[in-house]
């Protein structure tokens, strides 16, 4: 087994585009779930409207990709309003059901044959982000050091993606130390108490949903631009579950939790994937037990298992402080 190559791949995965995408998605979830206590299980819906916002604006409407970004952001705000209006007054578990349903509605709608002309149906849309690569200041060639060597195109995507992560993280940091963030946290702890102190809980929940949703659509942008394609089935509910694992792994209600969580998550997935693939290829695991195709399925099992184990044994995340969580049991 080529351990060197496997480790190298794992390290690259920790800083790769997927790590950045899921860091952003999980930062959005952190605003929702970690700080405000909103159970949003449709984060992938925000990613999808962001990604399709660009793709449809460019390929169907013929607009510039930069306008497409605005379309995507606008769409995610509209989605937040649509989701929030009926559900934010209701119990937390209703929000979970409605958001997961909404994400599914979005995916089914984008892949429907009747909208093929606009969204490309099940095959999606491609080649809409040329403008992004056109402004790449890096000249042709490879950049980086050690295992972290990427082509000039990849490097450009990664630099912009991680810069976005940094800017968003700083925003979250500032906001959560502000009185605004204090109100969100008070809603997480007890929304009736917040209401009794004159806070418009509904409106703050809406702001939180929209803000976290916008961050989710940024994740969609990065994914769409980095792969130059959107496909409806990329945006299945499993993506939201992945983002939850990332968030809980890194620790909820911590600014850097989602970022660290995402890097570790993708490193671990890359490791298990590559080790299993190599083991199957080299016959360490008999083909009767696992085929190459099935390695991909193991990933989902591990994520499911990880979610269970984290919540049962370490709901504070791998770096969190157990005592803080115990305060939750009132």
């Amino acid at each position: 087994m080529n351990w060197g190559g496997i480790v190298e791949n794992a390290l690259r995965a920790a800083v790769g585009d997927f790590a950045a995408v899921f860091a952003l998605a999980a930062i959005g979830l952190n605003v929702h779930f970690g700080y405000t206590g909103l159970l949003n299980f449709g984060q992938v819906g925000f990613m999808a409207v962001g990604a399709y916002g660009i793709a449809v604006a460019v390929t169907y409407l013929g607009l510039s990709m930069w306008v497409g970004l605005a379309v995507g952001l606008g769409a995610s705000v509209v989605l937040a309003l649509l989701l929030g209006l009926p559900t934010l007054r209701l119990r937390a578990d209703y929000l979970a059901i409605v958001t997961i349903a909404a994400a599914e509605i979005i995916r089914l709608t984008f892949r429907s044959v009747s909208l093929r002309r606009y969204t490309g149906g099940s095959s999606g849309l491609t080649r809409f982000a040329d403008e992004f690569y056109a402004v790449n200041p890096l000249s042709r060639g490879d950049y980086g050091f050690g295992p972290f060597v990427f082509s000039h195109r990849q490097t450009w995507v990664l630099v912009v993606a991680w810069l976005t992560v940094a800017v968003v993280s700083v925003m979250v940091l500032v906001l959560m130390r502000s009185p605004w963030g204090r109100v969100l946290k008070s809603i997480r702890e007890d929304e009736e108490a917040a209401r009794s102190l004159g806070k418009n809980v509904y409106w703050y929940k809406m702001q939180s949903l929209a803000f976290g949703g916008i961050i989710g659509s940024l994740a969609g942008f990065v994914l769409a631009i980095s792969t130059q394609s959107v496909q409806p089935d990329t945006y299945s509910s499993a993506v939201t579950f992945f983002a939850y694992v990332v968030l809980i792994l890194g620790g909820t209600a911590r600014v850097l939790g989602p970022v660290v969580g995402s890097m570790i998550f993708w490193m671990l997935l890359s490791l298990t994937d590559n080790v299993l693939r190599a083991a199957v290829r080299e016959g360490h695991i008999p083909a009767a037990i696992m085929s190459g195709v099935q390695v991909g399925q193991v990933r989902f099992m591990l994520v499911g298992l990880g979610l269970i184990l984290l919540l049962v044994y370490r709901s504070q995340g791998i770096f969190g402080d157990r005592r803080e969580i115990e305060l939750d049991v009132r």
């Binding site: 925003m171 500032v174 906001l175 502000s178 009185p179 605004w180 963030g181 204090r182 109100v183 946290k185 008070s186 997480r188 702890e189 007890d190 009736e192 108490a193 917040a194 009794s196 102190l197 004159g198 806070k199 702001q207 803000f211 209600a253 803080e324 305060l327 939750d328 009132r330």
Partner: peptide, 29 residues
Amino acid sequence: TKALSRLTVLDNMKLGATGQRGERFLPAL
């Protein structure tokens, strides 16, 4: 009693003040 457990005692208190400029999204930034 509805003490906001994972907020400090001081933050619990400060939450009570009305008309805080920093409770609006943009100024909070």
